[in-house]
C-alpha cells in the first residue's frame, strides 16, 4: 500500500497562481501594444522589447548576485517592462529603457525584497526617475501618430495655451483623444484600447472595480465642476481630461498594482479618490501638465496607513459608525 499524504484542508486549490495572474495582465496590455505599433511604427515595438528584456535580465542577475531564489518565472518583470516602455515617448533614445529598468527593478523592487515587498510601483518609479534625470528626452519632443510630426500633448494645450487663441478642438477632437490619435507616450495615448484591456482584467477578476472607478470618477467629477478652459463646454473639458495623459493606463494598470495598493475594498476606494484628487491638483496647480504618475507615487506612501484604518468589520461584528451610534440611542 502506498503512503498517504496528510495535510491541512483545503485539499484542492484554485489553479490561478502568480504567473497566470501576470499572464492575464500581459494579455490585457496586448491591445494597447498593438495600438502603439500602429501609431508609432516599429520603433515602439523595439522599445517595448528592449525594456522587457532588460527588466527580466536585471532581475535574473540581481537574484544571481544576491544569491536569492530565481523569481523571473512569475512574469512580473515582463509586466513592469511593458508598463515602463508605455511611459516613454517614442522619440526617446534606445539606451533610456535599460536605465529606467535598472532603477525600477534593481532599486525599487529587488532591494526592497522582491515582488510583494516593494513600497512603490516599479514602473512608475522608473518613469519618474527618467523624467527627472533625463527630462530633455522625456518631455518636449512629442510626435503625432502616423505622420510623426512634432506636436504637443492635449494636456499641454489645455494647460499652456489657455491665454492664446488656439482652440483645442482644432487640434484634437475628443474622439482623437479616446482612440489615441494624439501625441504622447507609447502606450498611454489610446484610452479605448486600454479600456478594452481593463475590462478584460475586470472580467477575469484580476482587478476589482474599486480603484479604476474611484480614480477616473474623481478626475471626471472635479474637472466637470471646475473646468479651466473657456472655449469648450465643461463636459467636453472633462472628456479631454479623462481621455488624455495616461489616466486610463494609470487607473487600470498602474494604480491597481497589487503590491502597492490597499487590499481592503474601502481602502481601495479611498486610494483611488486620493489618486484622482492629486492628479487633478497636479494638472491644475503643478509645474507639469501631467499628474497621474506623481499622484500614484504619492499615494503609494499612504497604502499601509489606509489598509490599517480600513480593516472591514467582520461578518456579524459590532458596527461603530456614527450612523449606528445615532440609531442605537
Amino acid at each position: 500500500m502506498s503512503e498517504l499524504i496528510v495535510s491541512s484542508s483545503p485539499h484542492s486549490k484554485d489553479h490561478r497562481n502568480i504567473s497566470t495572474v501576470m499572464g492575464c495582465v500581459i494579455i490585457a496590455l496586448i491591445p494597447a501594444m498593438v495600438g502603439a505599433v500602429v501609431y508609432f511604427k516599429w520603433r515602439a515595438l523595439l522599445m517595448i522589447l528592449i525594456s522587457v528584456v532588460s527588466c527580466v535580465l536585471i532581475e535574473f542577475f540581481h537574484n544571481l548576485l544576491f544569491k536569492r531564489p530565481q523569481s523571473i518565472h512569475d512574469c512580473s518583470a515582463i509586466v513592469t517592462g511593458i508598463l515602463l516602455a508605455f511611459n516613454l515617448p517614442v522619440t526617446a533614445p534606445l539606451w533610456l529603457p535599460p536605465i529606467g529598468a535598472l532603477f525600477a527593478i534593481a532599486v525599487i523592487k529587488m532591494l526592497y525584497g522582491g515582488l510583494g515587498k516593494n513600497m512603490f510601483n516599479p514602473a512608475i518609479a522608473g518613469r519618474i526617475f527618467l523624467f527627472l534625470s533625463f527630462s530633455n528626452y522625456m518631455s518636449g519632443n512629442w510626435i503625432s501618430p502616423f505622420d510623426a510630426v512634432s506636436t504637443a500633448t492635449p494636456l499641454q494645450y489645455l494647460k499652456n495655451m489657455n491665454g492664446e487663441l488656439i482652440n483645442i478642438t482644432d487640434k484634437f477632437t475628443v474622439g482623437d483623444c479616446f482612440l489615441g490619435n494624439i501625441g504622447g507616450c507609447l502606450g498611454e495615448t489610446s484610452g479605448a484600447l486600454l479600456l478594452l484591456g481593463g475590462i478584460y482584467l475586470l472580467y477575469k477578476r484580476i482587478i476589482t472595480w474599486h480603484i479604476p472607478v474611484s480614480f477616473i470618477g474623481t478626475v471626471a467629477l472635479i474637472t466637470l465642476i471646475f473646468p479651466r478652459y473657456q472655449d469648450i463646454s465643461a463636459w467636453q473639458y472633462m472628456l479631454y481630461q479623462i481621455c488624455s495623459g495616461g489616466l486610463f493606463l494609470g487607473a487600470f494598470f498602474m494604480a491597481t498594482d497589487y503590491t502597492t495598493s490597499p487590499i481592503t475594498p474601502m481602502g481601495r476606494i479611498i486610494y483611488g479618490i486620493g489618486c484622482g484628487l492629486l492628479t487633478v491638483f497636479i494638472r491644475y496647480f503643478g509645474g507639469y501638465p501631467e499628474g497621474v504618475s506623481f499622484a500614484i507615487l504619492i499615494m503609494n506612501f499612504f497604502v499601509g496607513f489606509i489598509d490599517h484604518k480600513t480593516i472591514p468589520k467582520q461578518f456579524g461584528g459590532e458596527r461603530h459608525g456614527l450612523w449606528h451610534k445615532a440609531t442605537k440611542k
Binding site: D74, G114, Y258, P262, I263, P312
Partner: peptide
C-alpha cells in the same frame, strides 16, 4: 511564495476578515 498583497483572500472571506 511571499504574499503579493492581491487582496483575493479579503474578497473571498465569507466572514469579512483579512
Amino acid at each position: 511564495v511571499s504574499c503579493i498583497r492581491c487582496g483575493s483572500c479579503v474578497s473571498a472571506c465569507p466572514m469579512r476578515l483579512v
